[in-house]
Design a protein around this nucleic acid. Structure first.
Length: 575
RNA sequence: GCCGACUUAGCUCAGUUGGUAGAGCAGUUGACUUGUAAUCAGCAGGUCGCCGGUUCGAGUCCGGCAGUCGGCUCCA
């Protein structure tokens, strides 16, 4: 066990990396080099672009510095001295960082060999305490994260107290790469993209579409059971709708451009809410019909910047599992509690058990009366408590139109995904002048909550692929079992058994190829089959199947009846 | 959108200093009739992302565009 925490080791490693860069690029200008969740980075301005080979030489130089066990020597300077020193070296970014340090604070520097860095610390005593280091990638990054600033070059790396810990981390990264939904999507023939269709527009292949369909049916059933009504709304709408909603003012650059039809501009929808509001507005509403829970699998299109597209996780056309709850102020708390309960129960069915809520409060620029914000926030907080969850608060992180709760779920290999979002909206009810007639016979403004459990079907599908590593539970599997006749002589028997299983509602195929059993097994495993059912001479004779279950291994010979029973139980248990 | 890298057969990838493209798998045809992670042989498959330039000659060098990847920014 190292006496330093891993952040200190990583931040120290960032210094060492900067020192190495200084050796190789004497004119380098430095920004900052913090530790991150999984490693560290440092931002530089260099005379030329870094190439992957540079990482090797920088890493080599780092290892030399580490081997020399150089001390981290701390010293303090006055602001004037510090400025003078940084200016002499033309360290423009450091000078800006220096200016950020409030007057009266200590201005400390650390010296490691020839490299001196403005830094608050802390560090390890000497570079020898950095047990293991690896540089990982080169990236561009804006100075201070601001698009209008120059772009610096960032090197990412990671460091640990020991080589073993580093190797364990790299193994985890490999595991994540194996599960990458883009890779598995191709391997399992689930979905693709086409240049001819356009970036970020998903083509669902039969197997992927099957899983999605099964999931959507489940989604609809669960919503009906939980008091939602389902809607359909169009994909395009006239510009006046988007003027009223405010999208054309605030969001136009993220919308696909207008198409002109009969002298009107129509826009492809980036959101479903305005359409649902139009349904609300189709007649006078009474407090007696509230709360309304309206859900829709609504396909929207957003012109996302080209650089942000990422497999299914960030696309341009996607289907939101959207719902809007329209209710009276009195009902709001119960509604939020119910949404949270509903959401968590669904996450559990997919094997996500660790769920963390984040509460985002009022930002500086916001619409809606402060007392409504407070009431909404209180409702959110109470709901989280009632659900028995601890929640982190993201101060000022809400949307301008209302506070929200986001849920993050942890997947099978410990990664967190932001999924469910529950957002108050004080903007749209106002803009569309939504009202209901209250008990007092007067018009009142309802509360409106947007809620998406999965965010988008595409994104959720991508997360599921990675969570399950492509091995879907039986109820979602497009092909639930595959019968492998050992020779052609068992084909007729296999056919009869397949049909018997199919009659029980199971999705079963036969691998009737003229190939060895080993080859058929290999392919069935590659396709992540939940059940592999082998029929040889023995099985054909007594009407059984040799069962190999993905989860439990080889189970020996079972009657067709017993196989069906077992599979139906798995399906019911969502295994 | 910005920085950088990449793009060769359906897939995964080779391709020397510029001399006119190759493997494995998949496909297909035939043989084999097989007991739990690859039976053997034949055949077919490519405007080397697209457009332009340099050159006697470009997969290879240069420029533009598109797409993808790693990040940044963004995700009213």
């Amino acid at each position: 066990m190292s006496k330093y925490d891993v952040e200190t080791i990583r931040h120290s490693a960032a210094h060492v990396m900067a020192a190495a860069v200084k050796q190789l690029f004497p004119n380098a200008r430095f920004d900052i080099g913090p530790a991150t969740e999984n490693g560290f980075y440092y931002d530089f301005e260099l005379d030329r672009s870094l190439a992957p080979e540079d990482l090797k030489s920088i890493e080599k130089a780092m290892k030399k510095l580490i081997g020399r066990k150089l001390p981290f020597e701390r010293f303090e300077l006055s602001r004037a001295e510090a400025e003078q020193m940084l200016r002499a070296d033309n360290q423009v970014y450091k000078l800006e960082r220096l200016a950020d340090i409030p007057d009266g604070s200590v201005i400390s520097f650390y010296r490691t060999g020839d490299f001196v860095d403005l830094c608050r610390g802390p560090h390890v005593d000497n570079t020898g305490a950095i047990g293991a280091v690896k540089l990982q990638s080169i990236a561009g990054s804006y100075f201070r994260g601001d698009e209008s600033n120059p772009m610096l070059q960032r090197i990412y790396g990671t460091a640990f107290a020991s080589e073993e810990e580093l190797q364990a981390h790299l193994t985890l990264l490999e595991e994540a790469a194996k599960r990458d939904h883009r890779k598995l999507g191709k391997e399992l023939d689930l979905f693709s993209f086409s240049e001819n269709v356009g970036p970020g527009l998903v083509l669902w292949h039969p197997k992927g579409a099957f899983i999605r369909n099964t999931f959507e049916t489940y989604w609809r059933d669960r919503h009906y059971q939980n008091g939602y009504e389902l809607l359909y709304t169009p994909h395009i709408g006239r510009s006046v709708l988007w003027e009223t909603s405010g999208h054309l003012d605030f969001y136009k650059e993220s919308m696909y451009s207008a198409m002109e039809i009969d002298n009107s501009d129509y826009y492809v929808k980036p959101m479903n809410c305005p359409f649902q509001i139009e349904i609300y507005q189709s007649r006078l509403r009474s407090y007696r019909e509230l709360p309304l829970r309206w859900a829709e699998l609504g396909t929207v299109y957003r012109y996302e910047k080209s650089g942000v597209l990422h497999g299914l996780l960030r696309v341009r056309g996607f289907t939101q599992d959207d719902a809007h709850i329209i209710c009276t102020p009195d009902q709001i708390e119960d509604e939020i509690v119910e949404v949270l309960r509903f959401s968590m129960s669904i996450w559990k069915e997919f094997g996500f058990t660790e769920i963390k809520p984040y509460l985002a409060t009022r930002p500086a620029k916001a619409v809606g009366e402060p007392e409504r914000w407070e009431k909404a926030l209180a409702a959110l907080e109470k709901a989280v408590k009632k659900a028995g969850l601890d929640c982190a608060v993201d101060e000022g992180g809400g949307a301008f139109y209302g506070p929200k709760i986001d849920l993050k779920v942890r997947d099978a290999i410990g990664r967190e995904w932001q999924t469910t979002t529950i957002q108050f909206d004080f903007n749209l009810p106002e803009r569309f002048d939504m009202t209901y007639i209250g008990e007092d016979g007067k018009k009142h403004r309802p509360y409106m909550v947007h809620r998406a459990l999965f965010g988008s079907i595409e994104r959720f599908f991508g997360i599921l692929v990675e969570h399950y590593a492509g091995a879907f539970p039986l109820w979602l599997a497009p092909e639930q079992a595959r019968i492998l006749p050992i020779t052609e002589n068992q084909y007729q028997a296999a056919l009869a058994m397949r049909d018997e299983l199919r009659r029980k509602g199971l999705r079963v195929e036969i691998d009737g190829r003229q190939a060895g059993l080993g080859a058929k097994i290999k392919d069935a495993r590659h396709d992540r089959l939940n059940y592999i059912l082998v029929v040889g001479e023995r099985e054909a004779a007594d009407g059984t199947l040799a069962v190999r279950c993905r989860r439990d291994g080889e189970l020996g010979a079972m009657s067709v009846e017993a196989v069906a029973e077992r599979m139906l139980r798995d399906i019911a248990d969502k295994k």
